[in-house]
């Protein structure tokens, strides 16, 4: 009997991804934060600020330039929800059961990240589809568009690993939210995503420029609209991979250590 019951990294990750996707699709908070919130923000901010930010342009220009930021808003603000759910898994007994089953240690975590990436893809699709009639344009061609879609997924994966690290180390789900939400707020709004750098106060400019959200947004703009692309793209990829690998390694280490401790 037991010969067939072996841990299977691919198979078990798929099963856990299916579970995580089901939970994601069932969660109204995730739906609102990943799909409704970025659209609302795009419509409201365009209506309120487009004429101020671009006095000579207008609504369509604000959408065209701001769209990458709205995509990242949807991806960033849904990440803490998954992380809080993971924290509940770890402390609520679910993880304790998985650890006694013939399942690779990391399948549950990997499943959450797969579902997160699917959720990010839905955000990209919805924001782009609504943005197109409002003024968003791809002017570089199909490969630029492909890159434009994939880059936020990769950065979202980096954010997912960051969120996972917080989830594994935080004492409970509330702490996860309290830690991640301010980070995501700073990341998305203290950036060059919605206002040109030159319009930001002097002391904010270097911070906004160094912010990885700005780096990714600038690379997405280049992929959609042209201009120098290689450098911003490499910087954005470097940030995404660094987040994923750095936070991922720390999260896995912390997760493995949990099993050696007596208490949850």
């Amino acid at each position: 009997m037991s010969a067939a019951v072996r841990p299977s990294l691919v198979g078990d990750t798929l099963v856990m991804s299916g579970r995580a996707l089901r939970l994601t699709m069932r969660d109204p908070v995730t739906f609102v934060l990943s799909l409704i919130f970025p659209l609302l923000l795009m419509l409201l901010m365009t209506a309120s600020f487009a004429k101020i930010v671009y006095p000579t342009g207008g609504y369509s220009e604000f959408v065209d330039v701001g769209l990458p930021a709205f995509i990242l808003v949807g991806i960033a603000f849904a990440a803490p929800v998954t992380a809080a759910a993971t924290a509940s898994d770890l402390r609520g007994g679910f993880d304790a059961r998985i650890r006694t089953m013939p399942v690779p240690t990391l399948a549950a975590l990997a499943g959450r990240l797969v579902a997160d990436t699917a959720r990010s893809a839905a955000t990209v699709a919805v924001v782009v589809l609504v943005g197109l009639p409002l003024g968003f344009r791809f002017t570089v061609g199909p490969w630029g568009a492909v890159g434009f879609v994939l880059l936020p997924l990769l950065f979202g994966l980096g954010l997912g690993f960051l969120a996972l690290l917080v989830a594994v180390r935080a004492p409970d789900a509330e702490t996860v939210n309290a830690t991640l939400n301010p980070l995501m707020l700073l990341g998305t709004f203290l950036s060059t995503g919605l206002v040109p750098k030159s319009d930001l106060p002097g002391w904010v400019q270097p911070v906004a420029e160094a912010n990885p959200f700005s780096v990714v947004i600038e690379a997405m703009r280049a992929l959609a609209h042209g201009g120098p692309t290689t450098r911003p793209l490499l910087e954005a990829l470097a940030w995404s991979v660094a987040l994923a690998v750095g936070c991922g390694a720390l999260a896995v280490r912390a997760y493995r250590r949990r099993s050696a401790r007596p208490a949850g």
């Binding site: 995580a20 069932r26 995730t30 929800v81 759910a85 059961r97």
Partner: peptide, 13 residues
């Protein structure tokens, strides 16, 4: 020495 799991404050996503 408590088990890994403790009663959850919340439930899955």
């Amino acid at each position: 020495a408590a088990p890994l799991g403790r009663p959850a404050a919340g439930v899955g996503a």
